[in-house]
């Protein structure tokens, strides 16, 4: 039982990270029917910008604790949001009317560009987030010892997801985002500026990805210029698992994938960790081809 709950909390922390990244894939897919292959790199960029603030700009020398984490998140999310905004303007918008393949190639190009840029600036060796930013305290919950950092990371990712959910479902702009992803032409007839909504999505998605990047740095300490590939693939899997284009689906898919992976690694074999993730995906797609929450029946009368 101890072991199980340990693995479960570990899975939840990682799952929250997957979910945050998956949201970027799913939101972009929702409005543009495009896989933003550069999204994993934006996530990695978030991790690196966090490192820059902590080490290069020396924030960790001045202060520690939750305040630092908060600043890191704001800083990385803000800058990566700007990068996401320009990514769409430069790599995707000019190709909006072209065929799909052109946009896919552009996405792959952007991914390589970001990866190489990070490699040039930060080098190919893994960098290490300084320890002790968050106290390495262990909290005892119902007799189970859980590292505080896991709880904080899971709580932060859930908080960000709640904010996003509230925005999408309870604001006028959020309703416009949903309208654009359902029917762009009809959304334009409502007077919605679709380009603005798309820009907004390329601010929000990358910002959430950047938050996930900082969390990986805090949780595991190490970051690498190519970390976006692995995490990106997992998060993309999570987005499909939940039903690509579906926001709650990405949240559920990410958390589920994290938990399954952690439990699978513990009880089956750590070597099979990735295989278990993809096996889950295949299994779910066999029984629910649209993913867990994908495409609730839209009555087209």
């Amino acid at each position: 039982m101890q072991e199980f709950l340990q693995q479960l909390t570990n899975g939840l922390a990682v799952g929250g990270i997957y979910a945050l990244i998956a949201l970027g894939y799913t939101m972009v897919y929702g409005v543009l029917k495009l896989i933003n292959f550069a999204h994993g790199e934006l996530f990695a960029l978030g991790a690196y910008l966090g490192f820059t603030l902590l080490v290069t700009l020396g924030l960790s020398d001045f202060m520690g604790g939750v305040g630092v984490v908060f600043l890191l998140l704001i800083f990385a999310m803000g800058l990566v949001a700007i990068a996401g905004y320009f990514l769409e303007r430069v790599a995707y918008r000019p190709l909006r009317q072209s065929n799909r393949l052109a946009a896919v190639v552009s996405a792959l190009g952007a991914s390589i560009f970001f990866q190489n840029a990070m490699m040039l600036v930060y080098g190919t060796k893994a960098l290490v987030y300084p320890g002790g930013i968050l106290p390495s305290v262990v909290v005892s919950v119902l007799g189970v010892e859980i590292p505080l950092i896991r709880i904080l990371i899971f709580a932060s990712s859930v908080l960000l997801m709640c904010l996003l959910f509230w925005f999408i479902h309870h604001t006028r702009t959020g309703a416009a985002v949903r309208a654009v992803s359902l029917d762009q032409g009809a959304a334009r007839l409502m007077g919605i500026n679709v380009n603005r909504i798309i820009s907004l999505i390329f601010l929000i998605g990358p910002a959430l990805g950047a938050a996930a990047g900082v969390m990986v740095g805090l949780l595991y300490g190490q970051i690498r210029y190519d970390m976006g590939v692995g995490y990106g693939l997992k998060a993309f899997t999570a987005a499909i698992l939940g039903g690509i284009g579906n926001i709650p689906g990405a949240m559920a898919g990410g958390i589920l994938l994290g938990v399954i992976e952690a439990l699978g690694a513990a009880y089956i074999s750590i070597a099979w960790k990735d295989a278990i993730a993809f096996f889950t995906l295949i299994l779910i797609l066999i029984f629910r081809p649209t993913g867990l929450l994908g495409e609730r029946v839209a009555d087209k009368v």
């Binding site: 006028r172 949903r178 309208a179 009809a186 409502m190 009368v301």
Partner: peptide, 22 residues
């Protein structure tokens, strides 16, 4: 528009509110 093009997964209220978007 032709074919109504209502936002099927949004509520009736949300559809009407979007009509007043501007």
């Amino acid at each position: 528009p032709e074919g109504r093009r209502i936002f099927a997964l949004l509520s009736v209220r949300e559809n009407l509110e979007l009509g007043a978007f501007t």
